[in-house]
Design a protein around this nucleic acid. Sequence first.
DNA 1: CAGTGGTCTAGACCACGCG
DNA 2: GCGTGGTCTAGACCACTGG
Lengths: 263, 263
Amino acid sequence: MSQPKYRQIASELRGQIVSGALREGDRLPTEPQLQERYGVSRNTVRDATALLVHEGLVQRVPGRAGGMIVRKTASLTFHAHRAEMPAQPMAETDAWRSEVEAQGYEASQDFFLMIQSLSPDLAERLHVEPDSDAVLRRCVRYVNGQASSLQDTYYPMDLAEMVRELLSSKDVPQGTTRLLAERGYEQTAYYDEYVSRMPTPEEANLLGLQPGTPILLHIRTGYTEQRPVRVSFNVFAGDRNQIVATHGDVRIIARFRPEEAAR
Amino acid sequence: MSQPKYRQIASELRGQIVSGALREGDRLPTEPQLQERYGVSRNTVRDATALLVHEGLVQRVPGRAGGMIVRKTASLTFHAHRAEMPAQPMAETDAWRSEVEAQGYEASQDFFLMIQSLSPDLAERLHVEPDSDAVLRRCVRYVNGQASSLQDTYYPMDLAEMVRELLSSKDVPQGTTRLLAERGYEQTAYYDEYVSRMPTPEEANLLGLQPGTPILLHIRTGYTEQRPVRVSFNVFAGDRNQIVATHGDVRIIARFRPEEAAR
DNA sequence: CAGTGGTCTAGACCACGCG
DNA sequence: GCGTGGTCTAGACCACTGG
């Protein structure tokens, strides 16, 4: 029945956060203050606050003016469909940019192009031979100068040879989905997977993730009538993003969620 | 540049895991062995392994025959659409059950019914007054006897009074979506949100989550032509579930993913 | 019983960054 | 300078559980 001390301390602090006694951005008591208040050693205090850190509730900030502060949960909404439908007049990247800006933030992105040998898993998704080559187009997306998500899209090499723009390290002005459609590779079916997991150290580094921040992974495989033509891995910082998808008559939803009417 | 000791140790162990030198279910060296090997104190060893635990890679098991073992990443696939489309002959719960069983697991569930006053957030989603009552139907779903996900669905009270079966603490045989459709409340639009976050202690307890396990949250608001009629919160243990949604012509996808043909 | 991890103490020195 | 958190040590006792 009796909880260990560090859990009791964590519970009490957590209660103050979820009840609103401590608000976003507020500072928790310092470690010496918590030692004093609960009559425990510093390590016990740290065990307690480590729990809160790994729950994503609290962030530790070193330095004289630092401390432990209650994290913010600002969330950017990403629409899984807006950027994708061939009928759309807008390129993917522009769709993402306009979405971010419509939500009042500043958007920018970095682009990379690589040629990679396909892992068995990826080869199966693209229905090509393992170890065959693919074009990897990576896009790191920044919101207010802070890395927020990244997108890795793989195209089979034989397709890239038919649509040479995919091999250019420049942005495709009209968006790759439209480009492919113009060349006769219109994607008419999507297979979407959603996964939640902890980041690899590399992802945590790329996205500047605090401890206790999971990632939201959206994997989209796009099919023409004939074959899969690409697979995209969208890696979102879980504390700063959510994904929205709609089905059926969007006009009904727009009546109750005006922000959805935006197109 | 120099990494702290505990990170170096964690990196080395992580490398053995991701490279496959240590496989799922394998035991890591014990804490005394790691102290010896790296010449550090026990706390430093624990700091190192705590990192791996919170990355979801490793699970600690107390007891004589315990140790630290590499976690499994078995993943159940949940189709966001199968259970929902009014054309489906199958009830929601049965759809879930058959999906689990088709993947070779054993399925069971517990059901609860509660009446709750709506928070402002929920009231807005359902487009009713804050503090008005709603029916909450909770379903805890078990796979192989282990809690795997839970679903909380809220219906506005005025709707439940028109469709009294919603107030019964028994399962609705044909599924609530079909029931509502039969009574003239056919859902023709969905608003789906996907979120990744760390669990609350309550969720961790309900789902038996190990430290370092995030949850995948799927929020679905269902609309008839007239209004929102329900909002469902699907809480999935991130280490054991993924969600799949398809768009467009499913037959194309089925050609390359035979398991999708199962409907 | 013996060996695993779980909790806790009382110290120490360091890196950082505002005043 | 000096107070914050970051890292690390060397101990201690406990709870659990298979042999």
